[in-house]
């Protein structure tokens, strides 16, 4: 299963992650969080919080941050940061982003940063995010989406074998995600004109979800 191998890779890399890949994502994360407008009593779900790079950018005095990650190794690093920062508004849970351990309509914001393409079913991940987010909640995704520019698409194809080492693939098109999950994109932006990553800000409409017909098992 893809999740178990991803979990293993991240467990091993957790210590080195912040110094390498983590550096590259800081700016994007800071920027994305600034677009959330977190209010005092808001609940924020950080899906795939990893080592907690994002914890450096969430407000300390408002909102409650709930971090979820598949890797226990990553979460230990995240919890270390929570303690070092003296944060009282953050908690972490080990969990599978495709089977979230939360009740529906819980969160005011869901942040999905650099994680959507490392899971085996990105559509299901977004549907889970829609389920646990309140109607009208903001879902912010920072991710690489397949480029519509032919030159960049080729470059991505060339880079891909390296990226798959980190469980990163570049065959996910944003349009497919929108079509299959029914999310409503408010706006999207890149930090630079040529940036392989993109921040997409969405509103949770729940339009494509069949929440009424949920059976006994969440399978």
């Amino acid at each position: 299963m893809q999740e178990s191998s991803t979990k293993k890779i991240y467990d091993v890399h957790s210590v080195f992650y912040d110094a390498t890949f983590g550096r590259l994502v800081r700016r994007r994360i800071a920027q994305a969080i600034s677009h959330m407008n977190i209010k005092p009593r808001d609940r924020v779900l950080d899906l795939g919080i990893g080592t907690g790079v994002s914890l450096n950018y969430y407000p300390q005095d408002r909102g409650h941050i709930v971090g979820v990650d598949l890797s226990a190794g990553m979460l230990r690093e995240a919890r270390k940061k929570i303690r070092e920062q003296g944060r009282t508004n953050a908690s972490v849970f080990q969990g599978d982003a495709m089977r979230l351990p939360f009740t529906r309509d819980t969160f005011d914001h869901v942040f999905i940063s650099h994680v959507i393409s490392v899971v085996s079913d990105p559509y299901r991940l977004v549907q889970e995010a829609q389920r646990v987010a309140k109607p009208g909640a903001r879902i912010v995704i920072v991710n690489h989406f397949q480029s519509t520019n032919r030159f960049l698409a080729l470059l991505e194809k060339w880079l891909c074998p390296l990226c798959t080492k980190l469980g990163w693939r570049s065959d996910l098109a944003l349009q497919d995600l929108i079509r299959r999950t029914g999310v409503e994109v408010d706006y999207r932006f890149k930090l630079e004109s040529i940036d392989l990553w993109e921040t997409v800000v969405m509103t949770n409409t729940k339009s494509a979800l069949n929440l009424g017909g949920m059976g006994m098992l969440a399978v």
Binding site: V66, G95, R99, L100, P101, F102, T103, M216, A218, V219
Partner: peptide
């Protein structure tokens, strides 16, 4: 575990409290 957090937590298999 904080009661507020426990209240929103669910079993990922059955969605029960």
């Amino acid at each position: 575990i904080d009661p507020d957090l426990l209240e929103m937590l669910r079993c990922p298999l059955t969605h029960s409290p």
